Amino acid sequence: MTGQQDRWTELTGGQAGEEYARRFARLAESGHDIHGEAAFCAALLNEASRVLDAGCGTGRIAIRLAELGHRCTGVDVDSSMLAVARRTAPGQEWILGDLAGLDTLGLDPGFDLVLAAGNVIPLLASGTESTVVRQLAATLRPGGLLVTGMGLDAAHLPLPEAPLTLTDFDTWCDQAGLTLSRRYATWSGEPYQHGCGYAVSVHARPAV
C-alpha cells in the first residue's frame, strides 16, 4: 500500500458509487448495451474461467461475467462502489484494496484473465502505474491475459490531460513480462489506429 491518493479518489472523494450505478441503470433503461466489456472478455475465455476485475467499481462487468459462468473476483479501493457491488451480488467475492498493494490482499494467483477497464490505469495514483501493472501480471497463470481499456486524451478521460501514453503502458507491460497480443479502439473491436483517443489492449503472459 502506498498511502498516496489515487486520481479517482481525488476526483470523486470516494463517494461516487450510487451515482455511478444510477448512470448505468439509466443507460440500460434507454436501450444502451452496457455489457460490451464483458462480451469482449467472454470471447477470450474458456468455460468457467477465473477472472480478476481490478478496479471493479460497482461490479457491473464482474457480475455479468459471473452470469456467463465465470468465477470472478472484484477488487476496488472505493468502498462506495463496492457497497453497490456487494448489494447487487452478495454471493460474489469483493475485496476492498489498493491495486498498488495487490500482493497484500491474499489473492490466489493463477487467474485466466485480469481486467482493468473504465480508465483504471490512468486513474491510479501517480507513480504507482508500473507497480500495479507488475502486480496484475503476477496474478495471471502462464498464458493468461491482461485486458485494459483506457482513454488517451481529455475527450476520453475525466482529466484535463492524459497522465500516460500507450508507449508508457506497453513499456510497463514489457517490464512485467507481458506481450501485446492485440489492440482495438473500442470494446466492440473497432481497429486501433495511431492517434485514437481510446485503446483496448490485450497483453499475454507467456505460456511457458
Rank of each mutant, 00 (worst) to 15 (best):
G143N: 04
T58L: 03
R134T: 14
H194I: 07
P191W: 03
E29Y: 10
L136E: 12
L68M: 13
R183T: 06
R26A: 06
T167C: 11
T88E: 13
L68I: 05
L136N: 12
D168L: 03
A116K: 05
D153I: 02
D168I: 06
R26M: 03
S79Y: 14
G74V: 13
V208A: 14
A199L: 07
P160M: 01
W187Y: 04
V77R: 02
G195N: 07
A42D: 05
Q193Y: 02
V120G: 12
L164Q: 02
A42M: 12
R134M: 08
R7H: 15
L180H: 07
L152S: 13
S126Y: 11
E190Q: 14
Y198V: 01
A162E: 01
T131W: 14
G195E: 08
T171Y: 04
R141I: 11
L52P: 01
T12P: 08
G106S: 13
S49A: 07
L65V: 14
S80A: 15
T104G: 09
H70R: 15
G59K: 03
R141G: 03
A21K: 06
L159R: 00
F24K: 02
G127P: 05
A137N: 03
G69V: 15
Q15V: 13
L146I: 15
G118L: 11
A66S: 14
L105I: 15
R64D: 06
E161K: 14
A66E: 01
W8S: 05
E18W: 15
C41K: 08
A155D: 00
Q175W: 06
L124R: 11
C41Q: 12
A43W: 13
G59C: 08
G55P: 10
P163H: 08
R60K: 12
Q175G: 10
T148I: 11
A138E: 10
A28P: 15
L166V: 09
G151A: 09
Y198I: 02
A54M: 03
G149I: 01
V114L: 03
G151L: 01
E129H: 08
R71A: 13
L11A: 07
H203T: 14
D153Y: 08
A54E: 01
P160S: 07
T148C: 10
A39F: 05
P163W: 06
T58P: 01
R64Y: 09
L123K: 04
R205A: 05
Q135A: 06
G151W: 01
G189H: 06
L65C: 15
S126W: 02
R60N: 03
L164C: 03
I61D: 06
M150P: 00
A66D: 00
L115W: 08
Y198M: 02
L105Y: 14
F24T: 04
A39G: 15
E161M: 11
D53L: 00
R71K: 10
G127S: 13
P158C: 00
E19R: 14
C72S: 10
Q175M: 05
L45P: 10
E18F: 09
Y184H: 07
A116F: 11
W8N: 05
A100Q: 12
